[in-house]
Design a protein around this nucleic acid. Structure first.
Lengths: 138, 138
DNA sequence: TATAATATCTATCATTTTAGTAGTCTTTAG
DNA sequence: CTAAAGACTACTAAAATGATAGATATTATA
């Protein structure tokens, strides 16, 4: 499941993708349109800015805008930012690798092969769900 | 990511699958072999018994044994028991459906189509990872 | 029949994560 | 100058997670 943060981020990003290279949206307008608590969304957009997916302009007539192409941002990207590894265990994660507490020897772990298969398929399906697709296939 | 509960459950189930129709294993033996806190594993096995995937015998020479065929139990089943919906939002979950707090109209939700696609692919890959496969493809 | 080995049940707990809220400060167009 | 925007810092309530503790019930077997 997506956390609320991540779902809100996805919604906000799709909103911004719709006006990609055509303007900006204020936090308040996104929050209202999408039923997201404004202060919470503020934090989320700040994080999206920190990782350079969006940028913002302060002051009157300011707002947020997407800086990456909507074809280049996917659910997988947002999931990793807000919800962490896509893999089912840290030991098979490509982006967030960590050894498992309970596993003695990774090389001989009998879970590994299947978990890697699941990881690859999940990565693929989440990567294919780009912002652009959310717009096109609406 | 799998919770520890779920990962421990998976490991225990694979252990039990290896001796399917050939005997039983004690909590202690599984806990020791797999580096799982015994009391925690106890709770997990109790839950697996409650949902009728395993059964147990008390007393000396007692233990747990699988009652479903190892081809009929998958990561998807265990995920649902311990970690909940496989879908990314409750509103596209087949087994745990719930409307979303923030969505006004489900029918016109622009996230829906893509989230359903992801759900179907994830369900498939997690369902294909049966206990038997963990044994065969070890 | 006593006992040791096993599962079962009920309760509790510390820590972390989640989903926010509150208040103040900074920037900027007009 | 000021209103409208984002930025920053801090706090918090509730739930989930990953356990631990202790007492009870059952059963094979010596």
């Amino acid at each position: 499941m997506l956390s609320k943060r991540c779902k809100y981020a996805l919604k906000a990003m799709v909103c911004l993708a719709r006006v990609y290279k055509q303007g900006q949206l204020t936090i308040a307008s996104i929050a209202e349109q999408e039923n997201i608590p404004k202060k919470f969304l503020e934090q989320i957009l700040l994080e999206l800015k920190r990782v350079k997916l969006v940028n913002s302009k302060k002051g009157v007539a300011g707002g947020y805008y997407l800086i990456k192409d909507p074809n280049e941002v996917s659910v997988a990207d947002l999931y990793r930012i807000f919800d962490g590894p896509i893999a089912l265990t840290p030991c098979v994660s490509l982006n967030y690798y960590e050894p498992c507490d309970d596993c003695v020897d990774e090389e001989t772990c009998y879970l590994r092969n299947q978990l890697i298969e699941i990881r690859d398929k999940t990565r693929k399906s989440m990567s294919e769900a780009t912002l652009q697709r959310f717009i096109d296939n609406d």
